[in-house]
Design a protein around this nucleic acid. Structure first.
Length: 300
DNA sequence: CCCCTCTCCTGATCGC
DNA sequence: TGCGATCAGGAGAGGG
């Protein structure tokens, strides 16, 4: 599933392949893909037609293209969320449509930017900017790295964001009474972490996800956040190498990092640290993988 | 306000 | 071979 490392790989690909291009036309093939857009599909199409892509940015699992309308009259964000299965692909005009093609943006260089999404949890929408530090005030510098699309102003900095403050996240976690895995997945506390990297970080920090945040030491929570940062950094290092000239990679899985996973998907296999058989348990309607010896369950 | 459950969606896979 | 059940989970709405 696309979490921070996969989304960053996509962002880097877009920066390389579509920044500087002008959108000549847009086609929405599935209305659900633009359901978060305020306004209808024709509105989104009309505003993107003729617009130039100035930059590709990201926070957590959200990415956006910084876009300028013709003659510089309007500056806004084309916000993309990949959801569970979304892909941003660059293809030659006239290449056969992908099976789950949802939106097509034709560019001025003979390529198309395609949003392909099997499960349609993701989508595109247009948004204006607010200042990142005071999320309710319009920024003087739309598209500036310090500004965010309004709809994602509630998303916390991710560990690779210059505004990320690990000790502040620890403090806020300890101010809550909730299971620590739930907190790791809370995008308003720390963004970019999804189910896979949450399990990996908990395994690295030898912490059970069912432990309650206000009962964990500052030191241990700091170790957990450092582990989350490290595992996503490791994954990015191998995920960022796998796109070719016309393909902005997101494989919807964990890419080349899959072979490096220590927890996710390893139920019944020996823990790579102690050899104990890994377990899978249901949590928040999704799977959680952990070593029962290294990551002992809290007492009830 | 805070916490937590539910729901959206579709293709792959499995058991009968 | 066919078919129904199950599984995958990001994130926001809504309930308690």
């Amino acid at each position: 599933m696309p979490e921070l490392p996969e989304v960053e790989t996509v962002r880097a690909g877009l920066e390389k392949h579509v920044v500087g291009r002008t959108i000549t036309d847009v086609e929405v093939l599935h209305p659900r893909a633009v359901r978060r857009h305020v306004g209808d599909a024709p509105d989104l199409i009309g505003r993107l037609r003729g617009a130039t892509i100035l930059a590709a940015r990201r926070r957590g699992k959200y990415l956006w293209l910084d876009v300028e309308a013709p003659r510089g009259v309007d500056r806004f964000a084309l916000v993309v969320h990949l959801g569970m299965s979304g892909q941003m692909l660059v293809a030659r005009v006239g290449a056969p449509d992908h099976t789950h093609l949802r939106v097509r943006a034709t560019l001025d260089d003979g390529n198309e930017l395609r949003f392909v999404d099997q499960r349609t949890f993701g989508g595109w929408h247009l948004d204006d900017y607010v200042d990142a530090e005071s999320a309710d005030v319009d920024t003087e510098l739309p598209g500036d790295p310090a500004s965010l699309p309004r709809s994602i102003a509630h998303i916390a900095p991710d560990p690779f964001d210059s505004g990320f403050d690990r000790d502040e996240v620890v403090r806020r976690m300890r101010g809550k009474h909730t299971e620590v895995k739930r907190a790791l997945l809370d995008q308003s506390l720390i963004s970019g972490v999804g189910n896979i990297y949450a399990d990996e970080a908990l395994w690295r920090a030898r912490l059970n996800g069912a432990r309650v945040t206000d009962g964990i030491s500052r030191r241990k929570l700091a170790e957990l956040l450092d582990a989350a940062t490290a595992v996503m950094s490791d994954a990015l290092a191998v995920g960022g190498t796998s796109f070719d000239a016309l393909y902005v990679n997101v494989n919807g899985q964990s890419g080349y990092f899959e072979r490096s996973l220590n927890a996710y998907g390893r139920a019944g296999q020996p823990c790579r640290r102690c050899g104990t058989l890994m377990r899978r348990e249901e949590f928040m309607n999704r799977g959680s993988f952990f070593c029962p010896k290294c990551q002992p369950r809290p007492r009830q």
